[in-house]
Design a protein around this nucleic acid. Structure first.
Lengths: 223, 223
DNA sequence: ACCTGAACACCGTTCAAGT
DNA sequence: ACCTGAACACCGTTCAAGT
């Protein structure tokens, strides 16, 4: 049996793309908290300092991962996907699902928004849908911001509970605090405790999108 | 000159309250990133392990700090503060300002909500105001959630730019990406670039609250 | 220009042992 | 019950030196 010329495959050259690829793989395997500069470097068979040639810092790395991921958002471009409102739902639900599936990334997206091509495409698509719905441009522009922010924040909130047990305990603690709120001090919380925590994430997301669209439609920017 | 019985003041006994107090002081001096378990312990003249008798982990500590801070929210209880809508503005703007002034805390609030008395009071107040505005209880319950989430997310986003220079660069990068978006690939972003980033944080917050209230009013929970 | 070894300056959390 | 020294298992980022 001939011995291959090189026992190990050649170490592939570092590129920004390759770094983001490996980061995505690490994240799929164990969540964003496993994607550290040091571990990423280890997976790429180099030292952490080498990564800084291609990536400015951890925040930028996270933004790059997210932008790559945003390529998977369903932009509802098919002709038979219904009216603008329904297609808006499709896009935003798809975006939300993506972030729900990748715990931790949503949180970093709130602080450092991706500025890559996929993010721009998403914004462009939402602007087009609101325009189709007759929303005046100024309030559409601010509206898109809040639509994305709301979806991102929901995912950040939820995802943390999936990712580690500790946050799940916090969640239970808040629920208990709501359920056990004294009827004298907090009469409305006491009366509406069930409403406050009702619904699946899907139901709440759907209502939130409807509500936001209604609000955007009804609120001109010049008072 | 008589030598005092003890040269140094007696080391005060550790309590949860005292720990949160000191944490708040550290945060005022240098932002949340300066409030680490180790530094906090140092400020309290003890070792980090001692804190774990009173605080389960860092997330819980942050939530406790925020709940303490929420005691300062203007609940618009004065008789002459106008109608429900205006008072809702007062409460939410006050909440937003608080988080803007304490960079970093907003971010942690999105993941671990405080479950203390001040947070419950805030929720109770918002429920009362929406009730006064004739909003049906089920959609008020979900609405309060989004009102707080939106204010918190805005603060998280903004505050990071204040806190460190790096995020400010990210912000500029996104703005440039929007401003320079190609008219062919992103026609609407190109046309609406100015709108997308226009307005002061105050103006955007005000519009967002109006928009959310309009949406909540217009969106029943049973479709 | 690209890459890296080594260092700097830190983290959160646990746990056995003390009082 | 409360407290702690010491350890465990990590971090991000920088920089001088190499190729």
């Amino acid at each position: 049996m001939p011995i291959s010329r090189r026992e190990r495959p050649a170490k592939p050259a570092l590129t920004r793309e390759g770094i983001v690829d490996t980061a995505l793989r690490l994240m799929d395997e164990g969540g964003l908290q496993r994607v550290t500069m040091r571990r990423l470097a280890l997976a790429l068979d180099t030292g952490p300092a080498s990564l800084y040639v291609y990536v400015a810092n951890t925040a930028e790395l996270h933004a790059a991962i997210l932008d790559r991921l945003l390529g998977q958002v369903d932009l509802a471009q098919a002709a038979d996907e219904g009216g603008w409102r329904e297609r808006l739902h499709t896009v935003l639900v798809s975006y939300t699902r993506l972030l729900f599936a990748h715990p931790g990334l949503a949180q970093s997206a709130l602080v450092t928004r991706p500025a890559g091509p996929h993010y721009l495409t998403l914004v462009e698509t939402l602007l087009a849908l609101l325009d189709e719905g007759g929303v005046p441009a100024p309030q559409a522009a601010w509206g898109v911001d809040i639509l994305l922010q709301s979806a991102t924040a929901s995912a950040a909130e939820h995802s943390s509970r999936v990712e580690d047990t500790r946050s799940d305990e916090e969640w239970r603690r808040l629920n208990r605090a709501l359920a056990e709120a004294s009827a004298e001090t907090y009469p409305r919380i006491h009366a509406q405790a069930a409403d406050l925590v009702s619904g699946t994430p899907e139901e709440r997301t759907r209502w939130a999108i409807d509500m936001l669209v209604n609000g955007i439609l009804a609120t001109p920017r010049t008072r």
